[in-house]
């Protein structure tokens, strides 16, 4: 564990909590892509199956459980409890266009051809692109509420901080995982546009609105 990894994990946790608070307080999931949330739930469940096979640490186990439970809770809020507020019409990204290629890629490029390892690799690839339906929704409506913007910023920062963690681990421990590094870089790049808008608009107190 190093400072970058811890900061990344906390940023990830903050993102998830922000999203749940936003939905709960406003009693609405307007502006949130249910498609992205489905993908994140698939990511956590397929990645953390090793909960039953490998014990790393109490921290590791607790965080994995929190991620799985909170992603399922988010889906429950969106598709059951506050279903009426969910923006079906704008959330029209076809997730099979992400799920299928990620799974095929995991079958082709992986560290080991075992069920758990293939699912882990699939989850890494899928996580890299899971935010696309959300970004697509923001681009369709042309704006995002400030708390949604904070959520996206925290979620994007997490993988950027992990990139620093991987650089640190490479030098400090000689440890590296090319699959995670490559997918993490793609994931971070996808947020760059958003980071720019966040810093130039949201931090100056303006609403995140896309240029027409």
């Amino acid at each position: 564990m190093n400072i970058f990894r811890l900061a990344g994990d906390l940023s990830h946790l903050l993102a998830i909590i922000l999203l749940l608070i936003k939905i709960w307080k406003t009693r609405s999931c307007a502006g949130i892509s249910g498609k992205s949330q489905i993908l994140f739930a698939v990511v956590y469940i397929s990645r953390y199956l090793d909960l039953v096979t490998t014990f790393v640490s109490v921290y590791n186990t607790v965080m994995k459980l929190v991620f799985i439970v909170s992603s399922v809770a988010t889906l429950y809020m969106m598709y059951v409890k506050f279903k009426a507020t969910y923006d079906h019409n704008h959330d029209s990204f076809r997730i099979e266009f992400l799920l299928v290629p990620c799974f095929v890629l995991a079958l082709l490029i992986h560290a080991a051809f075992t069920p758990l390892e293939i699912l882990w690799t699939f989850s890494i690839y899928l996580e890299a692109v899971a935010i696309l339906p959300q970004l697509f929704l923001v681009s369709k409506t042309g704006e995002a509420e400030s708390i949604t913007s904070h959520y996206l910023f925290a979620l994007g920062s997490y993988r950027a901080l992990y990139l620093l963690n991987w650089i640190y681990r490479y030098y400090a421990e000689g440890h590296y995982d090319l699959i995670a590094i490559f997918a993490g870089a793609i994931q971070t790049i996808l947020y760059c546009d958003f980071f720019y808008l966040y810093i130039t608009k949201v931090l100056k107190g303006k609403k995140l609105q896309l240029p027409a």
Partner: peptide, 10 residues
């Protein structure tokens, strides 16, 4: 990255 690799990150 090896076969017996343990994924200790989240």
């Amino acid at each position: 990255t090896g076969k017996d690799q343990q994924h200790d990150e989240l």
